[in-house]
Design a protein around this nucleic acid. Structure first.
Length: 458
DNA sequence: TTAGGGTTAG
């Protein structure tokens, strides 16, 4: 606690605190302070409250400050506050515990978030949802789904929010079966209202799992659509090579109007929407349309292109074989192009047999990303395409021992009962591991790629 | 007076 005082004592608020301010008045004062001052000053205010009169601080005020620490990524201050919460005995307050799970997750310490979760006595749906979100935010979608299963096994009924985050995990993993199960659950379970977020999550899950028709069906029956709904569907069509459908949807989005006659569009596209539009143009070979949308994005909507938009434009030129135009576009970019952008052009040079430009781009890439041997392989393939075998061998030799051996992996999916999946001691689990071991034996022997017949013959 | 949610190139 000494450290808490020491670190935060370098800035003192100029205003004097009323003597012996107690909750809830102290909390009102803190909330007002949070609205009108910076996060750091609000924390200093909180500390002064606590130092002047410890009874002025309660779990409510601690929660307000912890939320600020989470929002502003104030790692040190958040940890100090956690220490204070422990010291004054607020730790068992579930609201604080839930917020601490989110805080540690945002700091990237998902293990500590899990520790907090384990300490919660009576875990409710919100608490479980926070842990599931923590794993998703830290790129551990598989773990997130495991927690979701455990939540069900612990007889905690999921609500709209827990189902929405579980769907995000399904979308990340391409776990269609679980996603469909959640969809069925939302329809049959009394009390679950499919709100806008849940509906959007369902559409996104179906799109990420390659079920574009199912996604479009849901999109069509959604009464309420916001920019997320439209954007998800536009991006989905674009990624599936359905450029006409994506652009048609974008045109319809721009025509959305509220019930007031002559009003402005009710849903405005954002920069992600334009990413979908530009992807649709590049995948559909629509050069002129792509250029127009790119211009409209800035002129009509005031949206400044980010690197992904610029990448889409480069992709648009490269796919059409307009290599010099792509080179000119990259060279004129106000944002520093990264290796991925240049690599896109290198790949196009290889596809279109432009060795001269390819060599120039390779030289630029060797300075940006010297360890990437794949660029040398692309260059050597370009030489091979022209029958320049000596040059090819020279480039291949220059790679030498820098080459990292390739590897590949396969995923074997089993459809098992939810309760078997979540129970590590279930007898069927051992049987599944035996089948997996059998399949791995086939992989190791290099005899053939295992398929369903190998499982049937086991 | 307090806690949890959705869209992004190659």
């Amino acid at each position: 606690m000494k450290y808490f005082n020491k670190v935060l004592s370098f800035r003192q608020p100029k205003s004097k605190l009323p003597a012996l301010l107690r909750p809830p008045k102290a909390n009102e004062a803190l909330k007002n302070y949070l609205k009108t001052h910076s996060a750091t000053r609000a924390i200093v205010f909180f500390r002064k409250l606590w130092r002047q009169n410890p009874s002025a601080v309660d779990s409510y005020s601690s929660l307000y400050v912890l939320k600020v620490c989470t929002q502003e990524s104030l790692t040190v201050e958040g940890r100090q506050l956690h220490a204070m919460v422990k010291k004054v005995g607020f730790e068992p307050v579930i609201f604080l515990q839930t917020c601490l799970i989110e805080f540690y997750s945002k700091m990237g310490d998902v293990d500590y978030a899990r520790r907090i979760f384990d300490e919660v006595c009576c875990k409710n749906a919100i608490c479980w949802t926070s842990l599931i979100t923590a794993y998703i935010d830290n790129n551990m979608a598989r773990k997130a789904l495991t927690i979701f299963r455990q939540m069900l096994m612990n007889k905690i009924e999921p609500d709209q929010v827990s189902l929405t985050v579980a769907l995000a995990a399904c979308a990340d993993l391409g776990a269609l079966c679980v996603g469909e199960w959640i969809h069925a659950y939302t329809c049959r379970k009394y009390g679950i209202k499919i709100d806008l977020c849940l509906s959007n999550a369902l559409i996104d899950m179906y799109l990420k799992c390659g079920q574009i028709r199912a996604a479009r069906r849901l999109f069509c029956i959604s009464r309420e659509k916001d920019v997320f709904t439209w954007t998800s569907m536009i991006v989905g069509h674009a990624l599936h090579g359905q450029s006409v459908e994506a652009l048609d949807l974008f045109a319809r989005m721009r025509q959305t109007r509220s019930s007031v006659k002559g009003s402005k569009p009710s849903v405005l596209p954002n920069d992600v929407t334009f990413l979908g539009v530009l992807m649709a143009c590049s995948h559909g070979g629509m050069i002129e349309e792509g250029k127009q949308y790119y211009k409209s994005m800035m002129d009509d909507y005031g949206l400044w292109p980010r690197l992904p938009h610029l990448g889409c434009m480069v992709d648009l030129f490269c796919r059409a074989g307009l290599l010099e135009e792509a080179y000119g576009f990259i060279s004129g970019m106000l944002v520093q192009p990264n290796a991925l952008i240049w690599r896109m052009l290198l790949g196009a040079c290889c596809n279109h047999g432009n060795i001269e430009l390819g060599g120039k781009v390779r030289l630029l890439l060797s300075k940006l990303d010297p360890t990437h041997t794949g660029d040398d392989v692309t260059l050597s393939n370009m030489y091979a395409g022209r029958g320049l075998w000596n040059e090819k061998m020279m480039v291949r030799d220059s790679i030498g021992c820098r080459r990292v051996p390739g590897c590949s992996s396969i995923e074997v999916a089993f459809e098992v009962n939810e309760f078997v999946a979540g129970d590590n001691h279930h007898p069927l689990k051992a049987e599944i591991y035996n089948v997996l071991e059998h399949l791995m034996g086939i992989v190791r022997s290099h005899s053939h790629i295992p398929d369903a017949s190998d499982i049937n013959s086991y």
